[in-house]
Amino acid sequence: MKSYLKLVNFEIGRFMKIYLVLIGLTILSQLIGVIILSKSYVANANEAIYEYLVPFGQFIEEYGRMSMMSVVDSIWFMGPIALCAAAFLFYIFFIWYRDWVGKNTFIYRLFMLPTARLNVLLSKATTIFLLVLGLVAMQLILLPIGSMLMKWNVPLDFRTDMTIREIINNSHYLFILIPDSFIQFLINYGLGFMAVFVLFTAILFERSFRWKGVLLGIVYCLIASAIFLAPLIYEFGIQASFFYPVELLIIEIILGILVIAISIWLSKFLLNKKVTV
């Protein structure tokens, strides 16, 4: 347990530089985005109303009021989120492969630590999980700051103020990251966690059997997806509509936990018996 926590801290430390760059980029891009979009909206309004003498009501009708939605849907906002998502997708692989690359193979050290090798895997998974949550938390903190910036830049009559939850619930991708209900939150991130474990297992297949392992890894991903999606495929593919929604939810939760358990068990086996440094 102690080794696991130390390893988590260690892994977090290793990613810190890139992580801080991601955070910095997100903060900059989103806040600059708010200011630029607000200013251009106000400029547009000024031009229309003072130069072309468009009545206020008509302007609002044509252009709509400025709200955080137009910010949230812009590239300024989505861009860094997409970048972070891509970075973490990449990092799921990189967190393993960088320990194997080059002459300085740190994986020797990790695998010779006097602790269960599974802790190495768990610490890597935890790191990814924690850092993703950290980014989303930062997003939650950035939203009210962005709203405030918009309020400073756009006069009251021209804007629609929204609460943080309204902004989130109206944006499809934010709603996935920060769902409305805590249960949904658990489901979303549980799914994410499951995917990470499945991918880790696939990576360990590759690390154990190399080219043959790539194939095995892909096959494992397919099997895991098949197990998890089986009831849904049965339900919608064959149009059987056999299960009630609540039953389906419970079955999916059980299957999700099962897939995670199988992945961890397989990973443990591969780490102890098959992996080659």
């Binding site: 300085n104 193979t105 740190f106 020797y108 050290r109 010779m112 630590l113 006097p114 602790t115 269960a116």
Partner: peptide, 19 residues
């Protein structure tokens, strides 16, 4: 076993630390 790594160590031909 994992505890054996307190009794035996391996010094590979290249360093096993992060550069």
């Amino acid at each position: 076993s994992k505890d054996t790594y307190e009794k035996i160590t391996f010094i590979p031909d290249a360093i096993t630390m992060i550069p």
